[in-house]
Nucleic acid binder design. Structure first.
Lengths: 147, 147
DNA sequence: ATAAACCTTTGAGTTAAGTCACAGGTCAAG
DNA sequence: CTTGACCTGTGACTTAACTCAAAGGTTTAT
């Protein structure tokens, strides 16, 4: 079991961030000590790492809360609802992947062109390096009620 | 040439967001009308779409500003500096790609397990579906001075 | 047994990224 | 030649996601 400071240090975040996540329903410590200290389990740590990774790839805390809440009710199989959410998130992820792949291509091209010599003049900005197929820009304004 | 409202509508963002991006050095309209109205070119629109895509995959405006500023000084070849920045961003992107790919795998697994039947009980949460190789969590605190 | 380093709660402050409000100028249509 | 939809600037407000401060309880080390 980790105390708050230990877990925070291990994951390089602030103690207050952990309290904040708790208050916002993202990560509740598995236990409390007799004196009220938060006690986090190994599994709690994994959840936290999941949260941090998800944040890193652009999910909001509200979205992450949703992701974490995905859990098939084994007794009643409320599967359909879950699948819907999962598939929606999957679409999000695939869209992000597509965008990122394009960024990767562009940046790679730019990097290669860069110190290659004088023939590189055409690909000297990100924008020039980006394929100009900008058709797929998407915007969603899901308004999940947050904390 | 687009006026602010036209471009904003075309890209499904707020007029004020465009003014905000301008104030923060992300997108300056190519021209102004005689009466002072902002006039955006087709290229401006592409830049905006770039910004929106970059935002979508988790880049901050400060990072996007950096990305946009990547431009090889063709006369003086300040190539080395540029390459360094590009390669740093490339690393970022590749890391995000790796994370996202794992999310994709997990979500796919979850989706498939979900309405598959009763043997799916093991993969009923994101966390269960995630490979437990959580070793690679990374945190960066670049402090680019923002606008 | 007392200081130092931890933890508790409540509540206020900060930063990034918008978003809104206001007072007024512009322009196309009737 | 005025009405309505658009634009201008400046500045205040909002939201998400922290981050800090204050007042006090707990644990460990001397």
């Amino acid at each position: 079991m980790y105390r708050i400071g230990e877990l925070a240090k291990a994951c390089k975040i602030n103690n207050d961030t952990l309290r904040f996540y708790e208050k916002n329903g993202l990560l509740r410590p598995s236990d409390r000590s007799d004196s009220g200290y938060r006690l986090y389990s190994e599994k709690d740590k994994e959840i936290l790492q999941f949260i941090l990774r998800a944040k890193g790839v652009g999910f909001s805390l509200a979205e992450i809360r949703e992701l974490l809440s995905i859990e098939v009710d084994k007794a009643n199989n409320a599967c359909a609802d879950v699948k819907e959410l999962v598939d929606a998130k999957l679409l999000d992820v695939e869209q992000k992947l597509a965008e990122l792949t394009r960024f990767q291509t562009s940046l790679t091209r730019l990097s290669e062109a860069c110190c290659g010599g004088e023939e590189s003049a055409e690909h000297c900005t990100i924008l020039a390096a980006l394929e100009s197929d900008t058709s797929q820009v998407r915007h969603e304004h899901h308004h999940h009620e947050a904390s």
